[in-house]
Amino acid sequence: MEVLSRNLDFLLDGLINTILLSLSCIGIALVVGIVIGVLQTNKNRLIKLLSRGYAELFRGLPIVITLFLVFFLLPEFGVNVNSYISAMIALSLWSSANISVAVRGAIQSIPPTQMEASLALGLSSYQTMRYVILPQAVRRMLPSVIGLMSNLVQSTSLSVLIGNLDFLKSAQLIIERVELMEGLSIATQMYMLVLAVYFIICYPLSILAKRVERIYR
């Protein structure tokens, strides 16, 4: 307990890093995911192939591998990224792929008559998508997007593997420091605390996802 109060600032910094990482990823992933999801319903076969390939690729790769690919390979192309930015890119790739699939599913669940009616009224296909289809699709994809957010917060913990100083990493550093300086092992208590904090963040999200699903069904 005493160790905890001494290191509270350090832990909080880690927690803020985790939350910022999650928020920036969900922001990027929503934009990219919706665009790619819409492209997946495009009539052009090449566009369809590419956008579906993107989703299949980043959903198929384990997140750890995407993370390593971004972290180790971007510098080889002359793009210098630190571990935070790498984690942000990799997790955005993964979550946007997942969101795009949810978007595609939602769009395809809208009756085609909606599309036909709006086109018949003289709206362009962009306007149809923007004002008719997407607003309806958003409600249907909301549960899976909220569920994904909980998933994303959990997945940010993977960024410790490339050395990002997130919540889990700061907890680990405290464990190591206490062990070195005082010869005490606080691993058990510390990891329980970490589990509890993640649970406090993610549990409300999963409850919300279930609620929203019940409302919109």
Partner: peptide, 23 residues
């Protein structure tokens, strides 16, 4: 189910590997 689904797998792994030896 709620506990496992709402906490990261990586932390489960670390807990089992580094935390359990205390018991």
């Amino acid at each position: 189910v709620d506990l496992i689904r709402n906490t990261p797998l990586l932390v489960h792994v670390f807990f089992l590997y580094f935390g359990l030896p205390a018991f």
